[in-house]
Design a protein around this nucleic acid. Structure first.
Lengths: 365, 365
DNA sequence: GAGCTGGACTAAAGCGGTTGAGCGGGGAGT
DNA sequence: ACTCCCCGCTCAACCGCTTTAGTCCAGCTC
């Protein structure tokens, strides 16, 4: 403000004035309310007037001032999404941007904008959600990376801010009698894990490692539990099939792989399932660096496909899911919630396994 | 609205009421205006009252209603960013998310939110920008992926919407006498290209290919021009040093590499510079698939570093830049513009080349 | 003690929409 | 012919904050 006066650049063009409803009213020769009714498809104006008003609005290039609408109409026309990740983890995975692109597709069809924020940790995320609510900045939010003990759904429910959790709440909540605090869309991690194990087991693998994501994330825990269950179903012990947690980064994926390969050849896993594409590529690369041939000596599966899995040699067998579709689904659910739909749980499409060259029979088979 | 009435879920908790300035005024025993003055650090209230008002506001957990503030104060507290990319191109590259994370860092320090939208093409982007302006949804915007003939700066200037172009405007504009339509932050692509060529030339390479990004993007063109200039400076001909354009995808990066390697061994390039990390990895992988050893028979340089470049074997020599820092710089520039700073051009940090295992002397050297 | 100054504070008018109450007029009902 | 009602429209209040134009009073001057 102070600086504005000081900077003396007369060069900048005067901003064009934006027309308001008053302008339309004047030109159409009706009252402002009539304009409002006409433009919002509300009864109370003749189709004749409605048409005229619409035409004038069109001519003037009028668009509702979002602040004014929000102030009276109670709706801001914004959805929010906070991504809590330490900067260095933000990375290569394509999952997120694809998810967002799907979300946008659904939101923009209804002219809802997306407010997006990247923060360092969960506490900051909670603060941002609170602030958005208090400032009435958003009508609802999408929650990503749900955790097993997640404070967000409770907070959002108590604030009365419509929300959709992407990725599902804690597994055992689904069938509990306690009502869900907020809606969620979820993927069938158990089913997906079963298909991965089917694939590996039928190739002959009996010792399988799972390089999981971050501990405490709901889907990580779900996958770990599913893996154990699937292993048990096939009579495999916890020595043979086990999970290790990482932070999803290429570095920890590589490190985990090293530790796995360091084990005695007799008992070391013949297949590794990675919880994301980046770690899978890093892992495959560690194997290559050690002269462990993929898939002859080690099979590799990536949970989540991306260009990455297709540009490496060998190309990685991956669990493919329609990530933009998942985002679209979540956004639609949020829109429904904004329209007053009850809290509910929606299942996304089941991912399918796309076998490529990185999986094959274990050595000696 | 209609649906809201129909859905009969009494289960949802009544949203907590958000306190307004009126509530504060009542509790502090002063008028609303006094509250406004007190909370906005404006003269007109005693420090005594100011303190009391602040305390009450704190107690009530008050936050300004952003719509109301925007409506009277003229500022929405939002910056906008549109990303125009066809969905399938959205991908693996980490550049974008890192840029955004830097942007957020600078914006959130000033409590400015980021409105983010992914669209399919430039026309849609223009429409979004217009709409945001008309709806007064944003105070300013950041423009990414500038093009040589870019309609956006002109549009934004004519609308009077403050903006910062990230990545710089057309090279020859910098020194032209015509004033810049909007501010921009830019990276020294020419200097970076020079350091890449220095590296390769001093290793002994004389035939160098450049797998560039999308035609029409300002930085693509700038790099192509710089490459030619640097080549000329060293007496290399256009047969020896040349650029090919792609769409930045792994697929086209691989395809371009295949075509390059298909050439007769005598004249084929001994080094390839890729305009992003994904293509570089894809290219290295094509080489590996053909039994062309990197770096013994082919050197590979990635423009832009990421985890990707470090997880492959061999690890890729890359041009490292501080992407979050670049985003931060751009956001700061936008904030300055919002405060009335004149249009200007700011240079980002010069990227530096990080030599790794993918570059070495050409064969026979 | 009247006149003036200035600091602390209030009243009220917007900002640009939405919305419920109100109102004139024409057609239907009796 | 009189009432009733509905249609099409206008008026005015309101959303929550900012800001301008006061009001009021204490303190100072001469």
């Amino acid at each position: 403000m102070t600086a504005a006066a000081a900077s003396g650049d007369g060069a900048r063009p005067r901003p064009a004035r934006r027309p308001t409803m008053k302008d339309i009213a004047r030109r159409a020769g009706v009252s402002e309310s009539a304009v409002s009714f006409a433009l919002n498809d509300r009864p109370g104006v003749s189709s004749d007037t409605r048409e005229r008003v619409r035409r004038v609005a069109e001519e003037l290039g009028w668009q509702a001032n979002s602040a004014a609408r929000a102030l009276s109409g109670e709706r801001s026309g914004c959805a929010g999404l906070v991504l809590a990740r330490p900067a260095h983890t933000l990375g290569v995975e394509s999952f997120f941007l694809q998810l967002v692109s799907g979300i946008q597709e659904a939101l923009s069809a209804r002219r809802v904008a997306l407010l997006f924020q990247v923060v360092e940790d969960l506490d900051t995320e909670l603060a941002v959600l609170r602030r958005w609510w208090a400032e009435r900045r958003v009508d609802g939010v999408l929650v990503v990376d749900p955790r097993t003990e997640d404070p967000r759904p409770g907070l959002l429910a108590s604030l009365g801010l419509p929300a959709v959790v992407i990725g599902g709440l804690e597994a055992d909540r689904h069938h509990a009698e306690t009502p869900l605090p907020v809606s969620n869309v979820w993927a069938d991690d158990a089913g997906a894990m079963a298909s991965v194990l089917d694939h590996l087991y039928s190739l002959g693998h009996r010792r399988i490692a799972h390089v999981a994501g971050m501990r405490g994330l709901a889907h990580t825990e779900r996958r770990i539990v599913s893996l154990r269950a699937e292993a048990a179903r096939r009579g495999l012990t916890e020595d043979e099939v086990r999970s290790v947690a990482t932070d999803y980064s290429d570095a920890e994926g590589a490190e985990a792989t090293r530790r796995i390969l360091d084990g005695p050849a007799r008992t070391r896993p013949t297949a590794i399932v990675y919880d994301n594409d980046v770690m899978a590529v890093a892992g495959a690369s560690v194997a290559a660096g050690r002269g462990v041939s993929v898939p002859a000596e080690l099979s590799v599966v990536a949970w989540d496909d991306s260009a990455l899995c297709r540009v490496t040699h060998p190309r990685l067998t991956a669990l493919v899911r329609d990530t933009p579709g998942f985002g679209r689904l979540a956004a639609q659910e949020l829109l429904a919630a904004l329209d007053g739909a009850p809290v509910r749980s929606v299942q996304g499409e089941l991912p399918h396994l796309e076998p490529r060259e990185s999986t094959g029979p274990p050595p000696g088979e």
